[in-house]
Amino acid sequence: MAIAPQDGRLVELEGVRKSFGPHVVLDSIDLSIRRGEAVVVAGPSGSGKSTLLRCINGLEAIDAGDIRFEGQSIPKAGKGIYRLRAEMGMVFQSFNLFPHKTVLDNVTLGPIEVKGLSRLDARARARALLERVGIPEKADAVPADLSGGQQQRVAIARALAMEPKLMLFDEPTSALDPEMIREVLDVMRDLARDGMTMIVVTHEMGFAREVCDRLLFIDSGAIVEDAPPEEFFRGAKSERAREFVDKIIHH
């Protein structure tokens, strides 16, 4: 059992580098995130935001540096990586629900297969979570029967069913119609208020302003801003971030 650092840091990145071929996606990233923090990651597309999340839960292996979760380095492969992933939830832009399973089976799969929960317990937990994300009546539907917003809320419930210590959101509302964005953001805001540690890659600056503790701005694989949202919007230090704020506010 790893001992959690006393200062409450849940995730730490140190000199993390990642490239795809000649293209450097993350360039010596240093970052630490405390328990209970809600962090929004913003930046132009292709700046490495998604890759950052994928490296944290080991879907991509890093080239150099270290990523620690509760003080424990993320292993490159083997059993350790599976165990760590089970402690982090991830929500994807394209939902990625399992189309051949019902909503309830999507949500119970992880707890049954990974945590060894009994079917009965897993179902009870899944129903409670579907209640929490506001769609208890869709338990027996298949993903194809749901709207995008409903699918994403199921995806959130699926991740929460593993009782994660950290939630990673990779542009969770980018594939949604405007009227469905709200319902997903509401669920996420409630989560943050309940104290869930989360890292959210998003372009929803309203959400960032209202919900997050810190806003990271990434450009060309480097963190160029790391500030509370009010400070970021009032006056970002870097030219690139000011341009970004400008564009978002005037559109």
Partner: peptide
Amino acid sequence: VGKGQIDASLSLGLTYRR
């Protein structure tokens, strides 16, 4: 089968074989 399915399954902690 989309790559996103593999991502989603792995992110729940399932092994590659499962």
